[in-house]
Design a protein around this nucleic acid. Sequence first.
DNA 1: GTTAGCACTCTCCGCCCGAGAGTGCTAACC
DNA 2: GGTTAGCACTCTCGGGCGGAGAGTGCTAAC
Lengths: 343, 343
Amino acid sequence: MEELTERQETILALIIHEYVETGEPIGSMTLLGRYGLGVSSATIRNEMSALTHAGLLRQLHTSGGRTPTEEGYRYFVRRLLTETELPSDEKRLISHQFYQARADVDEWVRLAASVLAHHSRAASLVTAPHSSRAVFKHLELIGTQGRQVLMVIVLQGGDVRQQMLTLAEAFSQEVLSQTAAHITAACAGRDADGVAAEAGPFSELGRELIRLITEVMRRADAVSSGDLHHDGLSNVLAHPEFAQSDTARQALRLLEERSFLDEVLAKALSPGIGSVQVVIGGEGAWEELRDCSMVLARYGAAGYATGALGVLGPTRMAYGRTISAVRYVAGLMSDLMVEAYAG
Amino acid sequence: MEELTERQETILALIIHEYVETGEPIGSMTLLGRYGLGVSSATIRNEMSALTHAGLLRQLHTSGGRTPTEEGYRYFVRRLLTETELPSDEKRLISHQFYQARADVDEWVRLAASVLAHHSRAASLVTAPHSSRAVFKHLELIGTQGRQVLMVIVLQGGDVRQQMLTLAEAFSQEVLSQTAAHITAACAGRDADGVAAEAGPFSELGRELIRLITEVMRRADAVSSGDLHHDGLSNVLAHPEFAQSDTARQALRLLEERSFLDEVLAKALSPGIGSVQVVIGGEGAWEELRDCSMVLARYGAAGYATGALGVLGPTRMAYGRTISAVRYVAGLMSDLMVEAYAG
DNA sequence: GTTAGCACTCTCCGCCCGAGAGTGCTAACC
DNA sequence: GGTTAGCACTCTCGGGCGGAGAGTGCTAAC
């Protein structure tokens, strides 16, 4: 992409700002009237024409103002977005909310979703944190009167997995508890492969259990949208571009599609903790997201557990504010987790 | 409400059936043409007029056919709905899916949400099962390098709760594990009050832990929409009555409102396991749900753990099919849980 | 390079009108 | 007395029309 002149960049930024506010195409007169650049409307028209040819603006009808193209938003986010921070009173409010919920791990995720939805005025997505490499910590077996057993596996970092199994024969709770204690003693601190290697000395029951444990741990290792919270879907419907509910429906549907979420979250998780990714208009990969953008980030305590969070909203989104909110919440949750898990 | 004649009931049922199918107001000619009752359109008009005066039908414009009122739907559901069952091949398919997921407790809830959404073509809600009266089973303490400790509480029935806490001083993992084992030994099988009563002999650390455990258990006792899954929201948007997205937005927003969900689920949980509740048009209680209906049921193994599930869709909903689906899924999950927990 | 002026092109909105659908009423019918 | 045919009336929906408003691109002058 060629360089734009400073004036062209100013005009692009103003059009995006104005369009994000109003949702209506912007004409040269409007721009002049509202911001009074030191030039005439004709000059602005010339520059707008140039920006249109460069593919950064779009003209829906011959006589109906310009709107930014996806390429225009990308240029804006990449080059023109001034790094903003959330106002400090908002930051204080958010951090206070997290402080109050610090005891309830499950609540963090819900709170993060709620805060992101509120501050970005769009839909938010937050996965529960999970270990990048599951480390076994503890096994609990809960028997019933029959041959059904509930297996509770606690992983390092507090990730808890439950699995139901039916044994070939019934065992007493005493036998189950002893077996669980033996396995816990032998396998604590090991990863999936390490646990599998400990199977040797055990009875048939023990070996079967260890097989299941490694299975569960390998599932936990995979990037998973298993425990995903979201909030603020109704915010997205509030935007006029989703008034004809068909596009809204497509976007909503995508959010219920596991394969899509996995892909998105994998993308969010690919860079390091702290960096924020912006995906504008689906970037060609997701046709259904043509009118949507996502702002994604990874959070967590490196080496212990990480998760992904982000915001999904219309392409016409206040990127500055949203990026600040995502960055701040991701940072806050990372700090909390480092404090919690790493001492 | 006065009695209707048999012919009036037939006409009401046909109008509801036809309106649910097409979404358009039904006139006397349409009804005659499509079902050829043994009478003329004028007679049907007279009966429709009577039904309108009885408050069961509504006329939007002087010349635009009739639609059922909420009262009309209620009469239909209460008196006229022939008890249908899901086709046996659909039942077989659903039960097969649950059978495949029988090992993964968390998956049941997701699967139930997905099945309900699909078969009712509306939005579904399913809570994870939880004990109606929490019974303590096991405590696990997971220390970090600092004074932070993750407390994992396993309740009877496999309900697992996590709680983070900061101790006044740091303890070794060994001390934590011993304390956890002592508390587990002393309190296993007791309810919240029973656990609290065991605090006496313990050290300060132990008493603090027991205080927290009872707090968590009392929270678990409350009806809670804590772990709620839903699916099929996009189905609701597909209906033409939600084309102007404002009503859709209100409904969606309600689904993100905790207090509303708590209320709804409490309602669903009030009758016994197995019975299906139908709430039409919010029944006056929820203004935002004016165009929506809910079909709710309770599932679970009595005395062990129960949960709630249901469907939210437009008032113009295929009640027969939806009620069958809700009843079947609730029954299936109850059976699974009885089998799993009660042996 | 910038600006004023101007003709041109769209969309949007209100308006009218005819077609279509459905009703209520009345009077006749069994 | 319930049922039916006939008829005048009402109301919505969709298409066509036209003016107002907004914005553009071009040209010629600065």
